[in-house]
Design a binder for these strands. Structure first.
Lengths: 167, 167
DNA sequence: GCAATACTGTTTCAGATGAAACGGATGTCA
DNA sequence: TGACATCCGTTTCATCTGAAACAGTATTGC
């Protein structure tokens, strides 16, 4: 084969969205999120932000909204709204922090705990059904690659911000 | 180690959102999308839906909105709006289909083509910067895994619809 | 002490989203 | 034909989203 300059090569290779990794990633994540959103909604009437809050409360018991923000990759507005909904649904209750009146501590109600104990196995079952198409080694590799990519994206984004919006 | 029933095992293993693959996938895809959205917006004033439409028009020249829907994994409302914006920005023009008056065919204006020719290398460059954290074999593997997962999610979702909403 | 600053969580507001309804055009089948 | 189903792309409407402003509380530095 003849050698080409990389510019000529770029000319020669048409750009195909369906082979563009960021696009593939977005499409796959959206499909997966939609699957979970529908199942959670149908079974428990929960949205994904609500479920994520439940997952953190279930793991750590008395948590503040800020702790949920740190552990869910959701912004504080989204968490605030999800928690408000969970309070209204009677799945979560709120108590003031004894030392710092800015914080309020969240915990399950009895009803909330019952639902949590049902939804965790459901979540694991859907994940298992989904990841059946991968072998165990592939799952580990995927997880590792995703976290490297996420970290890289965060780094590139911050770097761009530093350059793009100086001071 | 003592053997446990899988139920007891499930009991014993706390549920951690950060090790839940669907969550990892969602977080990574969102970070990546945000990176691209910011760069495209800053450099060309384009949103991701607009860029996706441009990518399809650039590849296939005269396309209908429906063709864009099929090739971008976006719904027709989103495509309709993105195309309207591209028309307003003067990057795309619309001509009637000679045989079927329901369709209109989209193509670049000169300005649109100029921007397309700049944005494709930018997209490739960002992708390259991002995927630096993976080896070539890993990129291929990731792409293959993502498409299997997306297909599986689609299948499970349809299956659930069939069961959940009979008739 | 007491500004000034920083933090928590809510509200506001303007924009994005998608299901459903829609108007217009084409296809189908009797 | 002509009635009915189907398709294309837009609009509507109710909801979701997050940046920014906010009120209330805590911390810092003088």
């Amino acid at each position: 084969m003849k050698r080409m300059s990389s510019a000529a090569l770029a000319e020669a290779e048409p750009f195909l969205l369906e082979r563009f990794l960021p696009y593939e990633l977005s499409v796959t994540a959206n499909r997966v999120s939609r699957l979970f959103a529908r199942r959670y909604a149908r079974t428990f009437g929960l949205s994904i932000p609500e479920w994520r809050c439940m997952a953190v409360i279930g793991r750590y018991a008395l948590v503040s909204a800020t702790a949920i923000v740190e552990r869910t990759a959701m912004d504080k507005v989204k968490v605030s709204r999800a928690v408000a909904t969970l309070l209204a649904k009677g799945l979560v209750r709120r108590s003031p922090h004894p030392a710092d009146r800015r914080l309020s501590l969240l915990a399950f109600t009895a009803k909330g705990r019952r639902i949590y104990e049902q939804i965790v196995p459901l979540a694991r079952r859907i994940e298992a059904e989904l990841m059946e198409v991968l072998g165990p080694a592939e799952r580990t590799a995927l997880s590792a690659m995703l976290s490297r990519i996420a970290e890289r994206a965060r780094a590139l984004d911050e770097q761009a911000l530093d350059q793009g919006l100086p001071d």
